[in-house]
Write a protein that binds this DNA or RNA. Structure first.
Lengths: 113, 113
DNA sequence: GTTATAGGCAACCAAGGGGTTGCGCATCGG
DNA sequence: CCGATGCGCAACCCCTTGGTTGCCTATAAC
């Protein structure tokens, strides 16, 4: 069950992205088709339980969602959270760019005064 | 793609971003002005050593760079790595969008046929 | 039915991470 | 010179995490 959490904090999302295996899972899910756990496990180099754990972490960060269909559980990407993370990065780097520009302008125009 | 040591791997960068305190440090450094450790420590709610550790983690991910000036060490943001992280996220979400679009087109065009 | 497949739960383990304290060293300011 | 300030290093602590194995349940297939 996707519990609703304070979704705005970007740090947990980044933390969830901060693992090679989880990134691989995301890219494998990136083709849009929901995949079962055992299918994700195949060729992943880890145990089914390992994959399950990683999927839960990703789900906890809201990056992924799983549902049960029959005897298998299908997982797919969750769009919004990924874009939210992107916006967070944009925020930082844009803020930083603006400050740099201000600083540059200041230096160039006011330095001789 | 030639896997260049650890520099290009996005996971460590995300891992470095996956901590509230580190994100705060980044945003505080985001005004462009290099800051000393003790200045960063003030109002951060943690010890100087805590700040130092976090700065080292950020530096390890290439997000930040520090140099020594006199008795203090000044730290500032590192632009490129931040944008590299942004590009990584773009990559995932774009790949995903494309797949979704393909799927959508397929569904919409072939559904009635 | 029986068997095979897909997962969940719990325990366990080694390793790393966040955070602290104590101490020592350089540098700045009087 | 002496004291205060700014840091680094190392040790330590506790909690989380990545990953495993073992066992049990539920669904599917025959």
């Amino acid at each position: 069950m996707p519990q609703r959490r304070r979704a705005e904090a970007p740090a947990p999302v980044f933390a969830a992205l901060g693992d090679e295996n989880r990134l691989r899972l995301l890219t494998r899910l990136g083709n849009g088709e929901p995949m079962s756990i055992s299918r994700l496990t195949a060729g992943s180099g880890m145990t089914r339980q390992g994959v399950t754990k990683h999927l839960r972490v990703l789900a906890g960060a809201g990056l992924v969602r799983g549902r049960r269909r029959g005897k298998e559980s299908l997982w797919q990407l969750e769009r919004q959270r990924l874009e939210a993370a992107r916006r967070s990065l944009d925020l930082i780097s844009r803020q930083w760019d603006e400050s740099l520009n201000k600083l540059k302008l200041f230096v160039e125009s006011d330095h001789s005064d």
